[in-house]
Structure formats: structure tokens, C-alpha cells
Design a protein around this nucleic acid. Structure first.
Lengths: 206, 206
DNA sequence: GTCTATAATTTGATAGAC
DNA sequence: GTCTATCAAATTATAGAC
């Protein structure tokens, strides 16, 4: 068969424009939500014309899906999970404290992440696959790594490590949700230190 | 001064229509989100004309604010909180188990509540007061009641009851978020029984 | 007080030039 | 391959009849 890479290839879309469209559309969708975003604003933000968008993506929904898939895959807790492996000789308490703090450091005050999660939760009803992909690429790897750690850490004797991992992540992430995603920091004040201490006394020595 | 309640009062808006508009608008906003909702659809759903809507509410945003304020106030965990007081002689484990189960019963499979929370989280950036009101009327009373119980229950000796209450509600509510709001039930399976057992072994005997 | 009809603008999407 | 110009439909909001 002939190669696809002939000099005068029939490739019809510029990768640079594709990236510009995705970047511009990302910022507009994050700011205005799905229904609040117009193709005109995306064209302006991306520095291209509207027909160019439609030549690279079938329609508004196709562009949104492509863009959110890209964002969901960049959204993993990889850096936080590293805390579980990079100092294996540390005490479980030190390791788990660092995990909680890495998770909170990567979320608290991170306006782009806050806006992204708001968008995912708001659209998870109209785009069910988006919600599932968020859990698949975000929560699942974190829960698996933490469950594995809690299972194999010699000092801990947990009856149900997977449930303990759920309690750990749920406590940390819902704290982030109430304080920052819901603007509740002054309504129900709480410090991260007290929360993490509570988790330690519940997991490390129960 | 003259009374406002003269027989030929100058009252100019029918309360029945106001209620019809609020009800119709609620169902449309829940289904389509803020930007995805049109005043035409609200008029049809409410069984009134568009000018009638504008005579009762200043504009789309004013209608949305009025409606969400009403929904936020109906959204309390009152029934769940009752579990903390209606059988004070029960063991802490029995009381806390019932609280967790009441919370989950009122959420899991409750499509209207799922859609409502998705709407609040999705719009908490563009309507910051909405997020705060959600925490004020939802999380705060629940946390205060649970903290009070954990503080005064003789059998428990918790170092930080408020932090323990946070762990309890965060674990339960984030479970609901991942499994149902994010459609993650098949991606990261977990039973409510295991989760509640984990909470019991972390709080009742730590 | 509520409606019918409509104004003014914006929207998602495309035809056709180059 | 990308743009200018433009379409048909939908959108927020209102004027004026009754």
C-alpha cells in the first residue's frame, strides 16, 4: 500500500490550529459552562474563524467532548500518589500525612481545578460518560494505590483497606468541596490540620 | 398611616401565578441548567405567558436566584438529623449507623436531589452566594448536630468531635458523589455497608 | 394582571471566495 | 485549509391590546 506520508499529502487539517482551538475552547468552556459558551467566543479566543472550528470538529458537542477527554486525562493524582512510594521506610503516619497534604496542596486555591470540577459535576447529567471518565482517571488510580499501600503496610492491620481508602479520600476531597468549590470556608470553618489529625487517629492506630 | 390591606388593594401580582412560575422554572432549570434554560420553555412549563414572568421577576437571573433560594431552604438534612435524637438510649454505634443510612437513603437514587446538587456545584462559580447558602442550610446544621452528639455522648472519647463529624459526613457524601453524581458506581464499586462499617470502627472505638 | 405579537440581538452552522 | 459574509432559527425582553 502507498504511504500516507507522501510529500503532497492530502492531510487537510493543521495541527497547530487544532491545538489553538482546543486551548481557546478550554478557557471559554471553563469560564462560561457548556450552554453558556458560544462558538463565536471560541473562535475569538482561539484566533481562528468559525468555519475553521467546524472543519476540525463536527459541532459544539464534539468539540466539548474532545476537549474534556483531554482535560480528564491530565487530571490524575499522580504527584499525590508518589507520596505513597517515594519514602517507603517512613512510618505509615508520615506517608499518609504527606499524601493528604499533597492532595490538598494540588487542590486548595487552584482556581483552574476548581472550575474544571464544577464543570464536570454540572454536566455529568447531560454528558454521563464525562462523569465516568472523571472517576476512571481521577479517583480510581488514587484509590487503587492507596488501597494497595494500606493492604501491604506491615504496621497497619485494617479489616477493610479499600473502605479505609474511601474514607481517607472522601474526607479530604469533601473538605475541599465544601470549603472552596462551594465557597463555604467562612460558613463552616475547619483547618486541614485538624482534619488530617482525625484521619491519622482513625487509620494508623485503630 | 393607611393600611396596605384596603379592599381594592393595589396588589398587582397573583400568588398562584408566582407559584406556577417558580414550579415550572424549577423543573426546567434542573433539567437544562442555567444557561441552557430559555424563558420560552419556562413560560410553557408554568402555563403562563412570557410577559407574566417578567412582571413577577425582574429577569432570568432574578428568577433563578429566587428559585434556588427556595430550593436550598427545603434541602436540609432534618430527617437524617432526627436519627441523633429520637432514640437517645441506643448505643452510639446504632445511632451513627442510622444517621449514615438515613443520609444515604435520602440521596441514593433520588434523581431530583442529584440534579439539584449538580446544578448548585456547576453554578457556584457564577453564583457564589448560591454555594454559600447550600453549605449554610445543608452541611452546617448537620455538622453542628453531629458534633454536638459526638461531644456529649458519654461512651465516646474523641479528641476532636468537630473533625470527626467532618470525616463522617465527608466519607458518606463523597461516596454518594462518586457513585451517583459522577456515574462511577461500576468504575469503583463499593457497598455502603463496608463504608459504614469502616466509619464505625474508626469512630466508635478509636 | 395577563395575553398576543414583535423588536433587537445572538446563536449554531454553512456557502463560496481565494 | 482558512477566511468573509451570511443564513435560518432561537433568544431575552417589551409594547400595546383587553
Amino acid at each position: 500500500m502507498e504511504s500516507d506520508k507522501t510529500p503532497h499529502s492530502s492531510r487537510q487539517l493543521s495541527p497547530e490550529k487544532t491545538a489553538a482551538i482546543l486551548d481557546g475552547a478550554t478557557s471559554v468552556f471553563l469560564e462560561a459552562g457548556y450552554a453558556g459558551t458560544t462558538m463565536d467566543r471560541i473562535a475569538t479566543a482561539a484566533g481562528v474563524s468559525k468555519p475553521t472550528i467546524y472543519s476540525h470538529f463536527h459541532d459544539k458537542e464534539g468539540l466539548f467532548n474532545a476537549l474534556m477527554e483531554r482535560m480528564v486525562q491530565k487530571m490524575e493524582w499522580a504527584k499525590s500518589v508518589n507520596a505513597l512510594w517515594q519514602a517507603p521506610s517512613d512510618s505509615p503516619e508520615a506517608v499518609l500525612r504527606q499524601l493528604a497534604n499533597e492532595m490538598l496542596d494540588s487542590c486548595m486555591g487552584n482556581l483552574e481545578r476548581i472550575t474544571f470540577i464544577r464543570l464536570v459535576m454540572g454536566e455529568a447529567g447531560r454528558f454521563p460518560e464525562l462523569g465516568r471518565a472523571f472517576v476512571q482517571h481521577g479517583d480510581k488510580p488514587l484509590l487503587e494505590a492507596l488501597t494497595h499501600y494500606l493492604t501491604h503496610c506491615p504496621a497497619l492491620n485494617l479489616a477493610d483497606p479499600a473502605a479505609a481508602a474511601r474514607m481517607f479520600t472522601g474526607t479530604v476531597i469533601y473538605f475541599f468541596i465544601t470549603q472552596e468549590m462551594m465557597n463555604g470556608a467562612e460558613v463552616i470553618p475547619m483547618t486541614r490540620e485538624r482534619l488530617v489529625n482525625q484521619l491519622m487517629s482513625s487509620i494508623v492506630q485503630s
